[in-house]
Amino acid sequence: MLTGKTILITGAAGLLGSQLTAAILAQGAKVIAADLSVSSMKSKFKELIKTNNDSLTLAALDVTNEIEVKQFFLEQNEISGAVNCTYPRNTQYGTNFLEVKLDSFNENLSLHLGSSFLFMQQCAALFIRQQSPLSVVNVSSIYGIVAPKFSIYEGTTMTMPIEYAAIKSALLHLNKYVAAFVKDSRFRVNSISPGGIFDHQPISFIEAYKKSTHGHGMLSPNDLTGTIIFLLSQQSQYVTGQNIIVDDGFTL
């Protein structure tokens, strides 16, 4: 589905980004994998991908650094797809709602939502410069759509951060804004909203979460790659400003 395309993946060393990089390479595309550290990507890719693969380029990129991001995009040519899997946050992220400090809240919005804005802005600028089709995919969340089910966190030290809900819901409207601003059928901005992704959470949480789904429970990154590949491909060539929920019925 992606043969001949060049896809940019930011946050490529992460849980989803690394699996997505492998899946997109398997679809015949070239991948520019970007993250804070090239060595982190090499370590993450060790069992997934041959890092000497001619179709894979690794690049160090701090998505929260405006100068660095703008320079990075100026150096790109003929990118046909871009997926933002980054998740920047500060050390106070995840604090209980009543204990969150305003400065920390604002910093997390700046880090995550601000860098997402910058990513989409520069994707739009790249499209205007290259004048060839470009599909942008962002990763929102079920908690950008519905209120948290706080009961599933009972008995754990986990919570659903208020910053996360604010960021992921705002991201959905940024998609529409950017797509409408560029207003060109060749430039598309969409998102997926995954349910919870398994990352060795406490058993009690996993079991409680599963009861709110239709039986599958927590997702694996591979449960999401097909939807992202669809949005990057010509199979979705007139889908824009949309959000696809992948949650096994959690939000129903």
Rank of each mutant, 00 (worst) to 15 (best):
L2Q: 04
I7T: 06
G11F: 00
G11Y: 05
A13T: 06
A13R: 06
L15W: 07
G17F: 02
Q19Y: 14
L20G: 02
G28R: 05
G28I: 05
A29L: 05
A29M: 10
A29R: 01
K30M: 09
A34S: 00
V38Q: 14
S43L: 12
E47W: 08
E47N: 15
N53L: 10
L58N: 13
L61V: 04
V63W: 02
V63D: 00
N65A: 05
I67V: 12
E68K: 04
F73A: 03
Q76I: 02
Q76Y: 00
I79W: 05
I79V: 15
I79F: 02
V83I: 13
G94M: 07
T95H: 10
N96W: 15
F97C: 11
E99W: 11
S104V: 08
N106K: 10
N108A: 12
L109M: 10
L109T: 05
H112Q: 13
H112R: 04
F117S: 06
L118H: 03
F119K: 00
L126C: 12
S132R: 08
N138K: 05
N138Y: 12
G155Q: 04
T157P: 13
A165L: 12
I167G: 06
I167Y: 03
K168I: 13
H173Y: 15
H173M: 14
N175L: 07
K176P: 07
V178A: 09
V178M: 12
A180Y: 12
F181N: 13
S185I: 14
S185G: 10
V189E: 08
N190F: 11
N190L: 09
S193T: 09
Q201M: 12
P202Y: 04
P202R: 09
I206G: 06
Y209C: 05
Y209W: 03
K210C: 01
K211G: 00
H214Q: 11
G217S: 01
L231K: 00
Y238L: 14
T240C: 07
N243P: 00
N243V: 02
V246P: 03
T251P: 06
L252V: 14
